[in-house]
């Protein structure tokens, strides 16, 4: 009797072991929240075709960098690119995976989406606390015919460190010398005014609740929450709306070929229609893959996404990477990604 039970238990254990082995094709990643919607869409489609699962934890760009340094994940994701010397220091490589826009949104009584025009310096002055009322002369001068109330401006920013903030403050650093000298470009800065919401969702909630507020969110959140986005003045002096087309225009001029370690920031790009606060999101991998089979699974997923993910990305209002850039990235994979013995893992 005992023996049969034992045998049955052994069989069950073996069967379970087999199950685990076949389900082991999971790739793990962690990082930026900004591209999370499109990564999960890709993962869903990819899983249906190949059975490989992507486990992506959207814990934020800084978290993604920390996790890959701690080697708890197969890849990290960050909205803020690492500089070439940083990459070398940790033996990492990075490549751009997707692009999108950061959008200033307002909640002012009587103002609808696409009505309020903001110049670059006005946006900076609002976030610096230099402009405190919506009917300030500097704002009304750009908005003839629009009646703006004498409401106090409530500035909303991110409370947590964030890649979205990194892109936003990178833009403000480029367009305002006062911003560059006093606050700078980082995932979290010493905001001189305003209140902080947690995550894109938190900022969206505060802006929706508070009359007279302005915030900045990733484009998809502005769309989902039906928020009033502004027309922002770009480098060419035109007031442009946040649309996929205008993000693409900003991305088009990017010279990826000469960007060392794919370090590329897409804010304040030239072009008549370019949306000025555009950014790319990056994937981080170890140059030396200790488990080449697993590393190859990761690359297969991103390769599939480059080839087949454009439609899904556009539907979610992201900008897919152009084919030329994808080819460049694949060439880089072949060149720098090695297993322990120095053999390339992507051929």
């Amino acid at each position: 009797m005992k023996k049969t039970i034992f045998a049955a238990a052994m069989m069950a254990a073996t069967a379970m072991g087999a199950n685990v082995a076949s389900a082991a094709k999971t790739i793990n990643g962690a990082g930026a929240t900004f591209p999370y919607p499109v990564y999960s869409q890709w993962a869903h489609d990819y899983n249906k075709i190949t059975g490989v699962r992507l486990n992506y934890q959207a814990i934020g760009s800084g978290g993604g960098i920390k996790q890959i340094k701690a080697k708890t994940v197969d890849f990290g994701a960050s909205d803020a690119p690492l500089k070439a010397d940083q990459l070398d220091k940790f033996g990492l490589m990075q490549f751009p995976m997707i692009m999108g826009g950061v959008v200033p949104v307002v909640h002012v009584q009587g103002i609808k989406a696409g009505q309020l025009k903001l110049s670059a310096s006005n946006l900076a002055d609002i976030y610096l606390g230099n402009i405190t009322k919506w009917n300030d002369k500097r704002i009304t001068a750009n908005n003839p015919g629009l009646s703006l109330p004498a409401t106090d401006i409530t500035v909303v920013h991110r409370a947590d460190g964030s890649g979205t903030t990194w892109i936003f403050t990178n833009y403000l650093t480029k367009v305002s010398s006062q911003w560059a000298n006093t606050l700078g470009n980082a995932k979290a800065v010493a905001w001189p005014v305003g209140l902080g919401g947690k995550g894109n969702q938190g900022v969206a909630a505060f802006v929706n609740k508070i009359n007279g507020s302005i915030g900045y969110v990733e484009y998809a959140y502005a769309l989902q929450n039906h928020m009033a986005s502004v027309l922002l003045q770009n480098q060419s002096g035109n007031y442009v709306a946040p649309t996929s087309k205008n993000f693409q225009s900003a991305a088009a001029g990017a010279d990826w070929k000469h960007a060392k370690g794919y370090y590329m920031v897409l804010t304040n790009q030239p072009g008549a229609n370019s949306w000025p606060i555009t950014g790319a999101s990056f994937i981080l991998l170890y140059k030396t893959q200790m488990n080449p089979a697993q590393g190859k699974e990761v690359l297969k997923f991103f390769n599939w996404s480059y080839n087949n993910g454009a439609h899904a990305a556009e539907k979610l209002d992201y900008v897919p990477m152009p084919k030329a850039v994808a080819d460049m990235v694949r060439a880089t994979w072949s060149k720098v990604l090695k297993d322990r013995h120095g053999h390339a893992i992507w051929k």
């Binding site: 934020g60 760009s61 800084g62 978290g63 920390k66 409370a159 460190g161 995932k187 979290a188 947690k198």
Partner: peptide
């Protein structure tokens, strides 16, 4: 407590 909750994950 709220500072810790907000900033811990992204403190680089």
């Amino acid at each position: 407590a709220s500072t810790l909750a907000n900033e811990f994950t992204e403190a680089d």
